[in-house]
């Protein structure tokens, strides 16, 4: 990959629990996201993918290793060091019901990061533009999360993530809870927005099929370690690690057969 990475981790490790019963959530994971790149991180429960996501947005600190955004460490411990990250890197989670405040109207939820990060300008207008960009009908800003479908709630979460004009969007299982047809709509939306806004994307999922559709490069996490990394088509066609092969084989296909693994 040419040029300075936008967001990177260098040999990041994270262990939970104490000696004797320690769980190595991540072991020496290095990840480089280039400008405009779409990187997939595939892994299942216990792979460490959610820990990695939380470390990337500084919701959690690694025990060892380095995390850099635009070449600068985010682990310095000073609050102001985190400001560029808080603006520049946004995350959407699996369950928008859990990440949207049920008592806030949609418009307020989307405006929240603008307020918190003291972004200047006409917030009301910005919210309208964002809701429009994610394909929500006019008037949606007055609704509460429970009045929306799962797909619409995920659109709200995306609008909110885009509000501070981030450079990097991280999607952590962002379509896993959605029905197949709604999943396709939201995937198209994410891909379009990434293209249109020139975002860099880290798409974290347990589903290789979804990763293949959205990403150009993929990193396979298994029990906290990177077991394989490369261009997504190459890994799809010729996986080298047996776990990657099992992941690909497990994706159900139309009219396929269920294999006993």
């Amino acid at each position: 990959m040419a040029g300075e990475p936008l967001l990177e981790t260098i040999e990041v490790s994270r262990t939970y629990g104490s000696r004797g019963r320690a769980v190595h959530a991540l072991s020496r994971v290095s990840l480089r996201l280039g400008e405009g790149e779409r990187l997939g991180v595939v892994g299942e429960s216990g792979s460490g993918k959610s820990t990695l996501a939380r470390i990337l947005v500084a919701l959690e600190r690694p025990d060892r290793g380095e995390v850099r955004f635009k070449g600068r460490s985010i682990l310095g411990g000073r609050r102001q060091d985190l400001v560029p990250l808080r603006k520049g890197v946004q995350i959407i989670f699996q369950d928008p019901f859990g990440s949207l405040d049920p008592r806030l109207r949609v418009g307020r939820s989307v405006a929240e990061p603008l307020l918190a990060l003291r972004v200047p300008g006409d917030h009301r207008r910005r919210v309208q533009q964002l809701l429009d960009a994610v394909g929500l009908p006019a008037g949606s800003e007055r609704l509460y999360p429970h009045q929306l479908s799962g797909g619409q709630r995920q659109r709200v979460a995306i609008a909110r993530a885009l509000a501070p004009e981030p450079a990097v969007l991280i999607a952590d299982e962002a379509v896993s809870a959605l029905d197949v047809s709604v999943r396709a709509q939201v995937l198209n939306l994410i891909a379009d927005l990434v293209d249109r806004l020139g975002l860099s994307l880290i798409f974290i999922s347990h589903d290789m099929a979804v990763i293949r559709h959205v990403c150009t490069r993929v990193l396979v996490l298994y029990r906290g370690e990177v077991v394989e990394e490369g261009p997504v088509e190459q890994i799809f066609e010729a996986p080298r690690h047996s776990y990657t092969a099992a992941l690909i084989r497990s994706v159900p296909v139309l009219g396929g057969r269920i294999e006993d693994l």
Binding site: Q185, L187, V232
Partner: peptide, 24 residues
């Protein structure tokens, strides 16, 4: 069917946009 086939089949670079069902 076309939505389900779309996600599994090809990379986006090869297939373009995923087929969807209009509306909700």
């Amino acid at each position: 069917l076309s939505t389900s086939a779309g996600i599994g089949a090809e990379s986006r670079l090869a297939a373009g946009r995923l087929p969807t069902i209009p509306g909700s």
